[in-house]
Simulated scan of single mutants.
Amino acid sequence: MTNSYYAPKGGHPGQDQLLTDRAVFTEAYAVIPRGTMRDIVTSFLPFWDDTRAWVLARPLSGFAETFSQYIMEVQPGGGSDRPETDPDAEAVLFVVEGTAALKVNGTSHELTPGGYAYLPPAAEWTLHNKGDVPLRFHWIRKAYQAVEGLDAPDVLILNENDIAPSPMPGTDGKWATTRFVDPADMRHDMHVTIVTFEPGAVIPFLETHVMEHGLYVLEGKAAYRLNSDWVEVEAGDFMWLRAFCPQACYAGGPGRFRYLLYKDVNRHMPLR
């Protein structure tokens, strides 16, 4: 089955549009619907040419604590020779439209839709759009938590379409996770995966755990339980879940429901 990846296009609603929407911001979770991603809410970043970004999450009191997440839109000919200004930042890039010309530590790579790159802290990288259509990709950033005795992770260049999803036990493959990183590799302090639900599949209990989550819906629609509320979400929506926010899911169809998932992992809880 061909994978689908929703990406925002911006634009601006007319004066005849209703003001009501599904946007929700609480102490436990947030829902940022795709309809909020308009031209007037984009941001611009130093040393990026012909590029704008929708910021989905950032460290903020009462909001995301461990990560930031952008949807980057790079016009043909645009890009950056100095994309990251924080030497402690690690990154995951995930391409949803167009082609990225990525160079990491002197080696060139081409990322097409479904393309994934893990960039460890202090990696030397550049990124450009050498194609003739806009490039859109997710950029997830985290301050790497080094541990004495563990090396920093290696650069990873992969594509979702080359990786077999891992089914959750007892689900007959209706709930599966595409993993780009070995869960047993303790060098990594964050995982970015793709979760897929076939029509009718569920998260059958209220997951309540320490990992903070960012979920961007790539495809389909579902009813998602966030804390004490059920919300409807669709392709292009973003959800943030605070640590320990209860969550569950019912993917009623008619097609698959898939999202790009961030979570922090593999580290002790800070005590100060």
Rank of each mutant, 00 (worst) to 15 (best):
S4H: 14
A7D: 07
P8L: 11
G11E: 08
D16S: 13
Q17F: 12
F25C: 10
T26C: 07
T26G: 07
E27V: 10
A28M: 12
Y29M: 06
R34H: 13
D39R: 07
F47K: 14
A53L: 12
W54C: 08
W54H: 05
A57N: 02
A57R: 05
G62T: 10
E65K: 15
S68D: 04
S68T: 10
I71Y: 06
E73K: 15
P76W: 03
P83G: 05
P87M: 02
E90A: 13
E90L: 09
V96H: 00
V96N: 03
E97C: 09
L102P: 05
N105M: 08
G106W: 08
H109G: 02
L111T: 00
T112R: 11
G114M: 03
G115M: 04
Y116V: 00
Y116R: 01
A123H: 06
W125G: 06
T126F: 06
H128E: 12
N129Y: 04
P134Y: 06
L135R: 08
L135T: 07
Y144E: 00
Y144Q: 06
Q145P: 06
P153T: 04
L156G: 05
I157S: 03
L158S: 09
I163P: 04
I163Q: 07
A164V: 11
P167T: 03
D172A: 10
G173N: 08
K174D: 02
K174G: 04
W175Y: 14
A176K: 12
V181G: 01
D185F: 06
R187K: 10
H188Q: 09
H191G: 09
P199H: 11
V202W: 01
F205R: 10
F205G: 01
V210Q: 15
M211F: 11
L218H: 01
L218D: 03
G220P: 01
K221T: 12
A222S: 04
Y224K: 09
S228W: 11
V233P: 07
W240G: 02
F244V: 03
P246K: 02
Q247G: 02
Q247H: 11
Y250M: 12
Y250E: 12
A251N: 08
Y259T: 05
Y259R: 01
L260D: 01
L260E: 01
K263G: 04
N266Q: 14
R267N: 01
H268E: 13
P270R: 03
